[in-house]
Amino acid sequence: MRQIVLDTETTGINPKLGNRILEIGCVELVNRKLTGNNFHRYINPQRDSEEGALNVHGLTTEFLADKPVFHQVVEELREYIRGAQVIIHNAPFDLAFLNHEFRLLNLPPFDDHIDGVIDTLAQAKEMRPGKRNSLDALCDHFGISNAHRKLHGALLDAELLADVYLAMTRGQNSLGMDIVVEEVSTGIDLSQVALAEIFVLRAADDELAAHEELLNGLDKAVKGACVWRTAAV
């Protein structure tokens, strides 16, 4: 499965008021693995950023003056995201801007180019009701370092969100497992049942590699050696 983790930075919060996209950052996942095939573009929005937005991303009008305008990068973006499932934190915000930009160019909506959207903010609210679920809060919760994030940046935020999404959807996020054994009355005296021969099936090389990859992810999450490595010593 091909997934694209996407983030944008904008001149303000409402495209209906003339605000535009000024940065797009995308990170590619294939079968839940980072590929390094990322997409990152600064865009000249042809207007100034509102003060609140500028304080968030720090991208000045002067810095963006020589960058391409949206119509000069849209075909690259369309090709890059075509047919992928897109992962966004607070998806309605970014989708509103992307669809607005596509509409200005008389193109089919952004939504028509992709295979659905996952909103990690909505997922996080289901998992952590009543908690703060900003990207920074989720990084703290999952032990993902964001110390290098002084200002918002689309590619940096997409990279952090990719780590958050993989942690959120790993399936077993705690290191403990509660196993419930149900006792079933069979009428058989278990003390008289002969023990069966135990067969040991060794893991294949690809299974060992997948296991090592999972441990590396846990090491990264706890910023050291995870308990499974110390338990194996």
Rank of each mutant, 00 (worst) to 15 (best):
K16W: 10
Q72K: 06
C226L: 08
A221Q: 13
E197L: 10
I21P: 01
A53V: 04
I4T: 06
V184R: 00
I81D: 00
I179M: 12
I43L: 03
E51P: 00
V227S: 15
A210W: 12
G130Y: 06
I188D: 00
D119W: 06
A91Y: 10
F102I: 09
C26W: 02
P15G: 00
P68W: 10
E62I: 12
E79R: 13
Y165S: 03
I87H: 01
A91V: 10
D115H: 11
P15I: 04
G217Y: 12
V117F: 08
I13M: 13
I144M: 03
Y42P: 02
H71I: 05
A210Y: 13
P108C: 06
R128G: 02
L151G: 06
D48K: 15
F93N: 02
A162W: 01
H57I: 05
I179Y: 12
G176E: 15
E23D: 08
L135N: 04
Q192D: 08
R2E: 11
R47K: 12
R149V: 07
N133I: 07
L195W: 12
R82I: 06
G187R: 05
A210F: 14
V86E: 04
I179L: 15
Q46G: 08
G176I: 13
T61N: 03
A210H: 14
R149N: 04
V5K: 00
L104V: 15
Y42N: 01
D66M: 02
L156T: 10
V30Y: 13
E76T: 04
I24Q: 01
T8P: 02
G36A: 05
L151V: 11
A96F: 09
K33S: 09
K150Y: 11
V69H: 14
A203F: 13
C139P: 00
L201H: 14
H57T: 09
S191V: 09
Y165W: 13
T120G: 01
V180R: 13
G187M: 02
E79Q: 14
A232I: 07
F142R: 06
V193W: 04
N146V: 05
D111H: 08
Q123K: 11
A53I: 03
V181L: 11
D7G: 03
N133M: 02
K150D: 14
P92I: 05
N90T: 02
E207L: 13
L160A: 03
D136L: 10
V233C: 07
A225I: 03
N44L: 04
A158L: 05
V180I: 15
D112A: 14
T169N: 14
L121E: 06
G153T: 01
K16D: 15
G12L: 00
L6F: 06
H89K: 03
A209Q: 11
S134F: 08
E75V: 09
G224F: 07
D206C: 10
T186Q: 03
R229K: 10
I114T: 04
N19P: 01
S145F: 09
G187K: 04
N106W: 10
H40W: 08
K131E: 14
C226W: 05
E126S: 12
H152K: 01
E213D: 15
F93S: 01
D94Q: 04
D163S: 12
T61Q: 08
P109G: 09
L161D: 00
A147S: 03
A203M: 12
E101Y: 01
T35H: 03
H211C: 11
V117M: 04
T186I: 07
G25T: 00
M177R: 15
T35S: 05
Q46V: 08
R82Y: 12
